[in-house]
């Protein structure tokens, strides 16, 4: 059995300008655990993209990060509108974000592709009208005996 450490954050859906607080906090926490900087970078970018998505599309949600000996796992859950066509949403450049979000530099249709790109595993469970749960994992290198 491996020890497990977990962090949980409520992502505020009303405040776009403060989005990213959870990801920045996770970055700090992971650094304190002595995890490799490149792995921290991947985890925190993937989480930030997910956090931004929850703010833009779902009115916020809950982010949970679990650290085991094998991997860092990020679970993002919201009660937003859901994703009708996940395959389409995964395409780089596809976006349903409004212009106000685009003017802030987001909404380029790179969020989900970035999350996939930076993680070793990603699963999207979504029901239209109910919400979306995304699970991502970034593997930790095996410790040498």
């Amino acid at each position: 059995m491996s020890d497990e450490l977990s962090f949980r954050f409520d992502v505020d859906g009303d405040n776009f300008t403060s989005a990213g607080q959870a990801s920045v906090q996770v970055k700090k926490d992971l650094r304190r655990l002595g995890i490799d900087p490149e792995i921290i970078r991947r985890v925190s970018i993937a989480m930030y993209e997910g956090e931004i998505n929850m703010v833009i599309h779902a009115g916020g949600g809950v982010a949970e990060v679990r650290v085991t000996e094998e991997a860092v796992e990020i679970i993002l859950a919201d009660n937003g509108p859901g994703i009708a066509d996940i395959e389409q949403a995964m395409q780089a450049g596809f976006s349903t974000a409004p212009d106000t979000i685009r003017s802030l530099g987001f909404g380029a249709g790179m969020g989900l592709p970035n999350m996939k790109r930076y993680t070793d595993y990603m699963d999207i469970q979504s029901t239209v009208g109910v919400g979306t749960t995304i699970t991502m994992r970034v593997n930790l290198p095996e410790e040498e005996e």
Binding site: T17, G20, S23, V24, K27, R41, S44, L104, G105
Partner: peptide, 21 residues
């Protein structure tokens, strides 16, 4: 990581992006 990032975006989100990247 460790690169200088040139941009014309000036809102608060650039701070988070620079931190995370």
């Amino acid at each position: 990581a460790d690169e200088a990032w040139i941009t014309i975006m000036s809102n608060r989100n650039i701070v988070a992006v620079a931190t995370l990247a």
